[in-house]
Design a binder for these strands. Structure first.
Length: 647
RNA sequence: GCCGGAUUAGCUCAGUGGUAGAGCAGCGGUUUUGUAAACCGUUGGUCGGGAGUUCAAAUCUCUCAUCCGGCACCA
C-alpha cells in the first residue's frame, strides 16, 4: 500500500502500483479528463506512472503553470512527427523546452524555410486533432540503438550513448510515431491545443559544438490559451519597437556602415549620451579612490606574447603591418591591463600605497567573428570603463566586495535591480599554477558570498588569467548581455614583472583585480536606449528642451529663453520654423525631447513659458525663471544630487 | 566563422526578363498658425560591388561585401 496526501490535506491509501490516472478516475471522471499530468512530492511525472511509494500528490490541468512546459514539450514532439511525415528521411535529434517556447533540431539536406511553416503547422493541427495518447515504454540500450539504427536515425543512436548507465531508456509513442525522450508528457497529443506557432528557423550545431555538422532548428512557442499566445506576440512586437538599432536611427544617435563593420559612427546626440555616461562613471570612481590614466593604443606585439594574449587570442587581435622604416609589429590593444601594469611598474611601489586603483576609458579593438556583431551590443571597437586594482593577497576579498557593491549601486541609478551575477572559474585554456587558481577562486567566492546576492556558477568560463564575476543585464528582446565584471588576476602582474616592496623590504608581486562596471560603454548605451525606450531621464537626454514658437512675432523672446536655458547648463534647441505648433509638438515628441517650451504671444508678454513634458497630453504655464530652474534641478545626475545633499 | 534570409531615393517599402515607382523626409513657394501631420510645386536612384547568361537583367546564375535571425565565439 502507498499513502498519498492530496492538496486539501486528505490522506488516503492505495494499492502500490496504482497509477495517477486510476486515482483521478476514482475521484471523478471529469477530473480524469481534465488532468494532463501529476506531481509527486512536487516532481511532475506522467499521469500513467504507477505510484510505488508514499507521496504528496497533485493533479495538473492544462491551466496549471507547471503544465506549460509539458504543452511546449509535447508540441515539440508533434512538430517532429509533422516534419517527418512531410519530409520522410529527415532525421530527428533533440527538441527541448526553452524559456519562451521550444525548438526541435532536424538533420535534412534541404534546409527548411519559414515558407514551410504553414504546411507544418497544418500537419501539427492534424496530429493534435487525432489526439493519440502518449504512451511510455522502457527499452534496453541495445534494442533502442538497433531500432534507431535501422530507421537511419544516427543522431538518436549517438544520443543513447550519452544517457547515464543507471538511467532507463524511455520511448514515448504518440500513435505510431515514437521518440526517445526523458519525459514527462501529457496524456495525449490533443492536450497541446491550438495556441502554438512556429517562430523561426536557424542553423545550430549538433550538440552545440562547431566541429559537428550543422542541423536545422525550428523554433516555436505554445501556450495554454490563445490569448496568452497573442499577448506574447504583441510583447515581441513592442520589444522590437525599442530595439536600440531602430531607435538609434530614428533618434539620430549613431550609425554603422560597410567600411567599418562593428565600429560605431556616433552622431552628436548619441555622443552626448555616451559622454554623460562616461562623466557619471568618472565621478563615481573618483569618489572611491580611482585615478584616471591613458595608455597607448598600439604596443609592440611582443608585449602581448608575454601577457599570453597572442597565444590565446591571436586571430582576434588587430595587428599592424611591418614597414621599411620599422619592422616591429604592433598590436592594437584588445585590453588595457598591460598598459596599466606599465604605469604601476614605473617607479618603485611600496605596500603602503596599496591598493593602487588605475582607471581608463580605454578604447579597445577585438576582431569579433562576423556573425557575432550586433548593433552596439557586440562591436569590434569599444570603450571600457576599465580599471585595475593592485593589491596584496590579503586584500582580495575586501576590494572585490567594494567593486561588487559599487557596480550594483551604479545599476540601481539606472533602475536595474534584477541583475544576474555569474561566477566563472578556471577554463581549460589558462595560464598559471592550479594552486594559484585555488587561491584566486576562493577569495572571489568569499567576496561573492559576503555580498549576499544570488548568483549562478559558470563552470570553466573564467578568463585565461583568472576567475571572474560577471554582471548580466537583459535587453528588450530578452537577450542577456554581460556588462560589469570583476576578475582576480594572480598571473599577469608577475608575467609583466610588476612588484611592490613589503614591510620587510621584499619584492612582492601584487594581485591585480580587473574591473569594469558598464563594461562596454557602447553596449551599456544600447541597453539604456532599450531600457528607457528612448525616453531618457533628463540628466541623460541628449537634447533636454526645445524652445518652440507659435508665430514669428515672438522670435526674439524665444531666442532669449534659449540663451538663458543654455546658460543654466541645459542642452536646448530652438525651433523658429514656419510651421504650426501642432506640427512642432508632433515632431519633437516623436524625437523624444523631454521638455517642450512653447512660446506664444501670451508667454512673450508675461515672460512665461508653456511647458509640455514628453508623454503628457497637457501643459503647464510657468514663469520663465522658475521653469528653467525646475528643469535645471531635474537635470542633475543622481550621483551629483546625492553629493549635493551630503554637502 | 557556420546555416538561412535580406540589400531598390535620406527613411519605410512596391516593382518576377522589355523606358525604375509611392508615401514620408528634403528643397522652392504660399500660409503667421495655441499643443501629435496646413496647402501647392519640385529635386533626388550605376536597383550593395564585380562577373556571367540574354537582343534585352532591379528581376536569372556565380562571386564578394554588409546587415538581419539563430548557432558557435566573447580576454
Amino acid at each position: 500500500m502507498v499513502a498519498l496526501t492530496f492538496p486539501d490535506g486528505a490522506r488516503r491509501e492505495f494499492a502500490s502500483g496504482t497509477t495517477g490516472l486510476d486515482i483521478a478516475k476514482g475521484i471523478s471522471p471529469s477530473l480524469a479528463k481534465r488532468t494532463v499530468a501529476m506531481a509527486l512530492d512536487g516532481t511532475v511525472v506522467d499521469l500513467a506512472d504507477p505510484i510505488e511509494r508514499d507521496a504528496k500528490i497533485e493533479f495538473l490541468t492544462r491551466d496549471d503553470p507547471r503544465a506549460l512546459e509539458l504543452i511546449r514539450h509535447d508540441a515539440a514532439h508533434v512538430l517532429a512527427e509533422a516534419v517527418q511525415t512531410l519530409w520522410p528521411g529527415t532525421q530527428v535529434t533533440i527538441g527541448p523546452v526553452i524559456e519562451n517556447g521550444f525548438y526541435y533540431d532536424f538533420a535534412r539536406n534541404e534546409p527548411f524555410t519559414p515558407e514551410d511553416f504553414p504546411a507544418i503547422e497544418k500537419k501539427m493541427r492534424e496530429i493534435i486533432a487525432r489526439d493519440k495518447p502518449f504512451t511510455k515504454k522502457v527499452w534496453s540500450r541495445d534494442e533502442t540503438k538497433k531500432v534507431f539504427r535501422d530507421k537511419g536515425e544516427n543522431f538518436k543512436v549517438e544520443l543513447v550513448d550519452t544517457i547515464p548507465g543507471n538511467e532507463p531508456i524511455k520511448i514515448y509513442n504518440q500513435g505510431d510515431w515514437f521518440d526517445l525522450c526523458r519525459g514527462p508528457h501529457m496524456t495525449s497529443t490533443g492536450k497541446v491545443g491550438s495556441a502554438f506557432k512556429l517562430m523561426k528557423v536557424a542553423g545550430a550545431y549538433w550538440r552545440g559544438d562547431s566541429k559537428n555538422p550543422m542541423l536545422t532548428r525550428i523554433y516555436g512557442t505554445a501556450y495554454a490559451k490563445q490569448e496568452e499566445l497573442d499577448a506574447y506576440i504583441k510583447q515581441i512586437e513592442e520589444a522590437e519597437k525599442r530595439d536600440h538599432r531602430r531607435l538609434g536611427r530614428e533618434m539620430n544617435l549613431f550609425h554603422f556602415q560597410e567600411e567599418a563593420p562593428g565600429s560605431v559612427f556616433w552622431h552628436p546626440h548619441g555622443w552626448t549620451l555616451f559622454q554623460q555616461l562616461e562623466g557619471y562613471i568618472r565621478r563615481r570612481q573618483q569618489a572611491t579612490g580611482f585615478v584616471e590614466v591613458n595608455s597607448p593604443q598600439l604596443m609592440d606585439r611582443e608585449l602581448w606574447v608575454t601577457t599570453g594574449h597572442i597565444p590565446t587570442y591571436n586571430d582576434m587581435m588587430f595587428l599592424t603591418a611591418e614597414r621599411k622604416e620599422d619592422t616591429r609589429v604592433y598590436a592594437i590593444k584588445p585590453m588595457n591591463c598591460p598598459g596599466h601594469v606599465q604605469i604601476f611598474k614605473n617607479g618603485l611601489r611600496s605596500y603602503r600605497e596599496l591598493p593602487v586603483k588605475i582607471a581608463e576609458f580605454g578604447k579597445v579593438h577585438r576582431f569579433e567573428p562576423s556573425g557575432a556583431l550586433h548593433g552596439l551590443m557586440r562591436v569590434r571597437a569599444f570603450t571600457q570603463d576599465d580599471a585595475h586594482i593592485f593589491i596584496t593577497e590579503s586584500q582580495i576579498a575586501e576590494e572585490t566586495l567594494k567593486v561588487n557593491n559599487q557596480i550594483l549601486s551604479i545599476y540601481e541609478d539606472f533602475g536595474f535591480t534584477d541583475v544576474r551575477i555569474k561566477f566563472s572559474d578556471r577554463p581549460e585554456k589558462r595560464i598559471g599554477e592550479d594552486a594559484v587558481w585555488d587561491k584566486a577562486e576562493a577569495a572571489l567566492m568569499a567576496a561573492l558570498k559576503a555580498s549576499g546576492r544570488p548568483w549562478t556558477h559558470n563552470k570553466g568560463e573564467g578568463a585565461f588569467y583568472g576567475p571572474k564575476l560577471e554582471y548580466v543585464l537583459r535587453d528588450a528582446i530578452g537577450r542577456d548581455w554581460q556588462c560589469g565584471t570583476v576578475q582576480v588576476d594572480l598571473n599577469l602582474p608577475g608575467r609583466l614583472g610588476a612588484f611592490y616592496i613589503d614591510d620587510h623590504s621584499n619584492k612582492i608581486t601584487p594581485v591585480m583585480l580587473h574591473r569594469a562596471m558598464f563594461g562596454s560603454l557602447e553596449r551599456f548605451t544600447g541597453i539604456l536606449i532599450e531600457h528607457y525606450a528612448g525616453h531618457f531621464p533628463l540628466w541623460l537626454s541628449p537634447l533636454q528642451a526645445v524652445v518652440a514658437t507659435i508665430t514669428s512675432d515672438t522670435d526674439d523672446y524665444a531666442r532669449e529663453v534659449l540663451s538663458l536655458a543654455r546658460r543654466m547648463g541645459l542642452r536646448a534647441d530652438l525651433d523658429l520654423r514656419n510651421e504650426k505648433i501642432n506640427y512642432k509638438v508632433r515632431e519633437h515628441s516623436l524625437a523624444k525631447v523631454p521638455a517642450l517650451l512653447v512660446i506664444g504671444k501670451k508667454e512673450a508678454a508675461e515672460r512665461t513659458v508653456s511647458i509640455r513634458r514628453l508623454g503628457s497630453e497637457g501643459q503647464t504655464v510657468m514663469g520663465l525663471d522658475a521653469a528653467l530652474k525646475m528643469l535645471a534641478d531635474e537635470a542633475v545626475a543622481p550621483d551629483v544630487k546625492r553629493m549635493q545633499l551630503a554637502a
